[in-house]
Amino acid sequence: MSKKKRITLRDVARQAGVSPTAVSFAYNAPHQLSQSTRERILETADELGYQPHPVARTLATGRTNTIGLVMPTGLGWVLHDPLFSLILGEIGAVCDEEKMRMLIVPAVGDVSPGMLATIAADGFVLFSIHRNHPLGKVVERTNRPLVMINGDENLRAPMFNVDDFKGAYIACQHLLEKGHRRIAVGTIAPRDDGVIIPTYERRMLGYEAAVRDAGLPPATLRPVFIRGLLSMGAESFAKIWALNPRPTAALCVSDVRALAVLNGARKAGVAVPSDLAVVGFDNLPDSAVSTPPLTTLKQDLPGRIQLALRTLFALIAEETSDDDPPPPHITPLELEVREST
């Protein structure tokens, strides 16, 4: 069976009665042609079944129509974290609307300042990068368009965060107003490399400020390192319940940790909230249907992601400049009080 001949740019030019350069302009620089000429070329290309080569088109336009989503850890965390799944979905929806592709770039292997230069993307979204993370230097030195989500506000880049400090403050204040004075804080363990995730750092500072402003001792809060996996519920709850004196409430730096604690408490026969009140952070969909429904902090996630992506696309199109990035855009949080408190 003979192989079908590949239609080339020159075939389209010959059939449309124009030069090969005009065909290239029809795809890569339409402003160089009249509307009627461009329409004739595109109609001819469609009739012949011509498809411009993606690599050649990238070389001609300098664009890949692709953004890179750079993560602070490997893919294992990315694929297990429910909040990231929501963020990924929101980013994907905006990319679909703008006909952009997305690459997930885990921070494994080479995370030197030259890392982003090896990735074929027009710009980058950096997720949860701290100034002490190796990628912090990438942010400071790269000349590629980028925005940051849940980033370190000390880094110089367009930043789109939630008000972690204020949200944590009002969550802790909620428990203090209910009379709780022995509060466990379900948080993450320090990383071996000393890197601190900025989101959780700000939340811990918010909890501590609420206790301080209430005139209570720092020992009111008892940090406990628990895993962000629902399957670790029994272990997470056991660590909190083993504290001496036993806590009457638990603040968790994420909903997934709070949901794990709820699951462990239910299996242990501990009543929530009469024996242990629990507060989460993020308002995952499961938090509204857990047993009992989880008190947590909610945000306008779609609005925040859309604003971050629109900013990135404007930088890529050179409609705006990141030479002097604006102050961080901080999305407010609202306490959603449910039966767990």
Rank of each mutant, 00 (worst) to 15 (best):
R131P: 09
F127C: 00
F127Q: 04
A60Q: 07
P302Q: 10
E318F: 09
V78C: 02
T187D: 07
V70F: 02
D152F: 03
R131V: 14
P326S: 01
T64M: 12
D122E: 08
P106M: 03
P52V: 12
Q299A: 08
N244V: 13
D193S: 13
P327R: 12
V272W: 09
V270I: 14
F225M: 09
P54F: 08
R6C: 05
V185G: 01
V55C: 08
R57W: 07
G206N: 08
G17P: 03
I226K: 03
A214Y: 10
A308H: 07
D300P: 05
A56R: 05
L176E: 12
G264L: 04
I91F: 02
V138L: 12
G109Y: 06
V125E: 08
M115P: 03
T296V: 15
V253N: 05
F225V: 01
R266N: 08
R156A: 13
R101S: 07
P223L: 06
P54G: 06
L175P: 04
V162M: 13
G92F: 06
R156N: 13
N143T: 15
S340M: 11
G228S: 14
A314F: 03
L221F: 07
T295M: 02
L103M: 11
D110S: 07
I170F: 13
K99F: 10
D46C: 10
E235C: 06
D213Q: 13
R40A: 15
Q173A: 15
G179H: 15
M100C: 02
G179N: 14
R141P: 02
